[in-house]
Amino acid sequence: MLEVENLSVAYGKHEALRNVALRVEFGRTVVILGANGAGKTTLLNSIAGIIRARPGARITVDGEGIQDEPAHRIVERGVALVPEGRRLFGEMTVIENLCMGAYAQRARRDEAARLDEMLTVFPRLGERRQQTARTMSGGEQQMLAIARALMSRPRLLLLDEPSLGLSPRLAKELFATLRRLASEGQSILLVEQAAHLSLRLADWVYVLENGRIAKSGAPSAIRDDDSLRRSYLGL
């Protein structure tokens, strides 16, 4: 459903991404592995429309180009990003954050039902409806960020290092939730450094190095690749 071709992004003279191509099939979970500074965040941000790609790039959702659309239109197309650092509305309550998630036209109609659904998927949020977002713990904030993105009923969920800053136990819990979403048919594009957990989730894996796709394959193939094992799995 998502196809990226020839995606290059530059910050001034520094080229952050070069000719990246990837695809996410409907209902699948795709993981992009990469070290710090490999261009993972840039990749997700340019798909979400926050950063403009260089001319010539083509990003399509179900065949329609979105590379020139503003960010808010891309959400309406069904692509929601859980950004790096979560970017919650810190002064708003949990409920207000979730309702903002349903601001998109596509999600307004059955906002209430979706809200109930989210509070079941993330029971912790249900307990803290009126709490101000910024006073919550890191794990709860991450849950809220994901739930907020899901409120827009995205066809594709983009996640930018959701495990960052979480304890191993919380990270496990988070990935369990993601697995559940995936099993319910949610398409996911996840960028991560935490290879162990994400490889278990992935249907397909891309490896991003210095702004280029260095390798791609099924998780098992990546696990068997010696050089990758050293770089990403620390084995």
Binding site: A48, G49, I50, P70, A71, H72, V75, E76, A80, L81, P83, R87, L88, F89, G90, E91, M92, E96, C99, M100, G101, Y103, A104, Q105, R148, A149, M151, S152
Partner: peptide, 25 residues
Amino acid sequence: TRLGGALRAIAIDPVAAQLVAVDVP
């Protein structure tokens, strides 16, 4: 109101507001 929520969202974080489909400009 929904509009008001969007305005507050812009005040707090314009980038995040875009990510929930608010037409920030």
